[in-house]
Amino acid sequence: MHTLSSAQLAPGGPVFSPVAAGLWRLHDWNFSPAELAAWVERAIHLGITTFDHADLYGGFRCEALFGQWLKANPGQRENIQLVSKCGIKPLDASRGWQVKHYDSSHTHILASVEASLRNLGTDYLDLLLIHRPDPLMDPDEVAAAFASLKQSGKVRHFGVSNFSPSQFALLASRTPLLTNQLEASLLHTAPLFDGSFDQCLQAGIRPMVWSPLAGGRLLQAAAHPALHAALQQMAAELAVTPATLALAWLLRHPARPIPISGSRSLHSLDEAAAACRLQLERQHWFALLEAAHGHSLA
């Protein structure tokens, strides 16, 4: 069975796995029920028990696909953690959405959660995130929606995704936030330097990280030849794959980010689990940062 060490997302928060499994592309994977079951059960066996969703993934179809597995295996609910997001309304004439926009209103948050619970086949979410910062967000209205969902037991904890430090601070002044899910990788190091990870450390919360392998570009020489070469060489020295090394680079940060692995490959789940067991030395970490930035430190 799994050997990964789980940890709290924040004081008083849920216990998550150190890496999460992302379901953004689940609809595109065209899994049969048996293939989906094998993928989910492999993740759980490895200790990857946190599953990251959003209402609109796969044209609002991914949660229901995962829900088919959960409804067939209801006993597994207590062994996993479900994360979902809401607030993005893409262009969709059939829904009356004539332009892509964001909606953090009380009504939309509650309606989105009801749909997610129904599709996933569960009566609660472990964590709900506001998917994108909404320029029209009323923080008091969002706080009221979160309080209602918590009181009803439909959502246990809350956070945000893609919020700047000031946007996070604004909403956190009204309601407890347990994470900020951000894009971060060796090809997108901004959160390490723009105050985002600093803020998480200050608040004692763990950021979640989407696209930790830059959508696979990190593993392609064309995206950044020097970084690709450095990853290949160091991975060979450490007897791991470049993907495991790139994930371990993120995990080395003291904010203890939780990378989200979003591949249909069972091997990718193995690589993510292996990253949790690879403790990079400081010089290894900085060597990769130097390769990513293309220059040594000042």
Rank of each mutant, 00 (worst) to 15 (best):
L4T: 05
V19A: 05
W24F: 14
R25V: 12
R25C: 13
N30L: 04
A34S: 12
R42Y: 06
I48L: 08
L56H: 03
G58R: 01
C62K: 00
L65C: 00
Q68E: 15
A72N: 08
P74T: 13
G75M: 12
R77L: 15
N79L: 15
C86R: 00
I88T: 12
P90N: 07
A93N: 07
V99E: 13
H108Y: 15
E114T: 13
S116L: 06
L117I: 12
R118A: 15
N119S: 10
G121R: 07
L128Y: 10
L128W: 08
R132A: 11
D134Y: 07
E141Y: 03
A143E: 11
F146C: 05
A147E: 13
L149N: 02
K154A: 10
F158K: 08
G159F: 06
S161T: 01
Q181F: 12
S185G: 10
A190M: 11
F193W: 11
F193D: 13
D194F: 06
Q202T: 09
A203E: 08
S211T: 08
P212M: 10
A214I: 02
R217E: 15
L231V: 02
Q233F: 03
Q233I: 08
A235E: 07
L238N: 01
A239S: 14
T241N: 05
T241L: 09
T241V: 04
L251Q: 09
R252I: 02
P257W: 01
I258W: 02
P259H: 08
I260E: 09
G262L: 04
L266Y: 04
H267W: 10
S268F: 02
D270H: 12
A273W: 06
A275H: 03
A275M: 09
R282S: 14
R282Q: 14
A291T: 07
H295L: 13
